[in-house]
């Protein structure tokens, strides 16, 4: 295998970032599932499966490019304590939002197929995030500086 991706290869970096987010989501849903009530556990199980499919696909894409796919961390620090269905749902929302952020980076690549794949993944993750959080944001994944783009001709509120 060739060495891991270099910072000069934004495509590999985008793929690796998305893959890292998928690893985190797969790990996290293992915890989430344990604390959810039965009906929501099925939803979490589907989400877990969806993230595993994306992980496998990203690994395959990286391998086909001769890049060694990033590994899952042996353990992940939880952003907050999970001790029941509500905190589990909040963690699930966080995992999905983290994946949205990561896929947004991949949307920037020139490859039209990967761009589409990443945008579709963003929508899938955003749907699940909306389910777990019960609310959405106007610009999922976009940092504020990117929202209004390079042209700043007018004040934010007209």
């Amino acid at each position: 295998m060739t060495p891991p991706e270099t910072p000069e290869d934004p495509l590999a970096a985008g793929l690796q970032a998305a893959l890292a987010a998928e690893h985190a989501a797969i790990y996290g849903y293992g915890i989430v599932g344990a604390y959810l009530l039965t009906d929501q556990r099925a939803v979490a199980r589907q989400a877990w499966d969806a993230h595993r499919r994306r992980r496998d696909r990203l690994r395959a894409i990286l391998a086909a490019r001769g890049v060694s796919p990033v590994s899952a961390a042996p353990a992940y620090r939880l952003p907050r304590i999970v001790d029941g269905p509500q905190s589990a749902a909040r963690l699930a929302a966080r995992l999905e939002e983290g994946a949205v952020d990561a896929y947004l980076g991949l949307v920037a690549v020139d490859d039209p197929g990967l761009r589409r794949y990443a945008a579709q993944a963003m929508q899938d993750c955003a749907r699940r995030a909306a389910h777990w959080r019960g609310s959405t944001s106007a610009f999922p994944g976009l940092p504020p500086r990117a929202i209004y783009g390079p042209t700043r001709k007018e004040s934010p509120r007209s």
């Binding site: 891991p4 890292a20 996290g28 590994s71 961390a73 992940y76 991949l106």
Partner: peptide, 25 residues
Amino acid sequence: REHGPTRRALLGGSLSLVAACGPLG
């Protein structure tokens, strides 16, 4: 070599690698 982010990455935390991918904004 192992190149996982860290031994204990923050789950669902600062995963936004938008900056790493350059052109945004």
